Amino acid sequence: MATKLVYLVTGSNRTNGIGYSLVSKLAERPNAVVFAGARDPNVQSLRDLAAKHSNVYPIKFLVNDRANNDAAIADIKKIAGQLDVVVANAGIATLESYVPVAKAPIEFYQEHLEVNMLGTIVLFQAAQELLLASPTRAPIFAYISTGVASLTKFMGPDVSIYGASKVAGNFIIKALDAENPSLIAMAISPGWCATDMGNDGAKRRGSTGREEAPMKVEDVVEGVLNRIDGATKEKSSGRFWNFKPTSGNPWDCEQEEYPW
């Protein structure tokens, strides 16, 4: 019998989102126990998913709320007794934030940093004791980043608010890798994915001629899980992975990894 693996996926509220789709895919694995972190764990979609799969547990998760994060991890410990993989997927990129630096309200930067960077720190601090005690001896902390966070492959103007917050989140991943000898800490770009966030970006950046983002959620989820499954400290940690190489468009990345 396969060894039990316990996952926490944050940002699982939206049915067309990466988090919910990751939970749905992991739920099909007989050895997986999956905690779906969501602002409202009682939404019908998560209730239906938990009713269909006995290994799925919706759990209240509020980004950058230490007391809530502590309580969520305590519930995971009580129910499952361990935590092996954390997918830090919760994040924001508001439609109003696509503005040049000269016109960007400072509170927009603050809001995005609080969720996309500080929220990641709070999550790790709350989860670290249970996560680092994983019986696998190779716990994973995967941060869902973005190609916009690559300073080398600059994606263009008007995305400094979202991009800067994700650059900061990426730095935290590098720090976690360096500070924790057993932890597999990695950033993963999901590409330009057709979630609400990705589609908002397509509408805002009308120069692309697109009404929605080009990457299908199911393809992105498969790619993200391919990066997580079988990850090791030596080959996977402290790196900024592309969910899969793509080509043909200015926003694509043809490499397995994004340049920092």
Rank of each mutant, 00 (worst) to 15 (best):
A80V: 02
V9Y: 13
L62W: 12
T3F: 12
G230R: 12
E218K: 01
A80F: 03
E254Y: 00
Y20G: 04
R29N: 14
A178G: 10
N170H: 13
R137D: 10
E211T: 02
D70G: 02
R204T: 09
N42C: 03
G209M: 03
T232N: 08
R39F: 07
N242P: 04
F141S: 09
E129N: 14
R210D: 01
S145Y: 06
L225N: 07
G201Q: 07
N199S: 05
N68H: 13
A27Q: 11
R205I: 11
G156A: 06
V122W: 03
R39W: 07
P30M: 11
E254I: 00
D252W: 01
T232F: 08
F154E: 04
A138W: 02
D48R: 08
E222M: 00
M197H: 11
T94E: 15
L49H: 10
Q44D: 15
K244D: 02
L46P: 08
S236C: 09
R47D: 06
L26E: 04
L132D: 13
N199R: 01
V217R: 00
S150G: 06
Y143P: 01
F61T: 14
G238Y: 12
R205M: 14
I173G: 03
Y143Q: 05
F124E: 02
D252M: 00
Y109N: 07
E96R: 13
K4I: 05
T15P: 08
V85T: 08
V9I: 15
V23Q: 05
I121A: 06
G11N: 04
N16A: 05
A126D: 08
W260C: 04
Y143D: 02
Q125E: 15
D84N: 15
L132E: 14
D40N: 15
F243G: 00
V217P: 00
F108Q: 14
P245D: 03
A50T: 08
I161L: 11
I121T: 05
